[in-house]
Amino acid sequence: MNTPDNIESILLLAALLFCIGMAGVMIRKNILFMLLSVEVMLNASGLAFIAAGAYWGQPDGQVMFLFILAMAAAEVSIGLALILQIYHLHRSLDIDKIKEMNG
């Protein structure tokens, strides 16, 4: 078999990828890279769902992955439209310069 023996290693990999994505969201200042890191996090959660579905031998994990996929597509389209508008307004993608909401 080419698969690992236990599910713990897969969940560890998913947690590692999720943490890399979360670190990317926190350390980057460019909003485009933050969107890319959110994609990485969504992929990691999808991997956890697939691993759980494979562990129980049920199709529910893949169904949840399909929902994550649809949600990611919607999120990316809205986010990229927002990025275009932000760039038209501010001529920059730096999140430190986008502070009219005083966050």
């Binding site: 994609e39 893949q62 992955f65 996929l69 597509a73």
Partner: peptide, 27 residues
């Protein structure tokens, strides 16, 4: 490829088609 190894070939194909195909083109 990990999805394929985990016994989910349908999810693997969708990952390539939707993510690596469509979303990447958007970016």
């Amino acid at each position: 490829l990990l999805f394929y190894l985990l016994g989910a070939p349908f999810a693997a194909l969708l990952e390539i088609i939707v993510y690596a195909g469509a979303i990447m083109v958007l970016f």
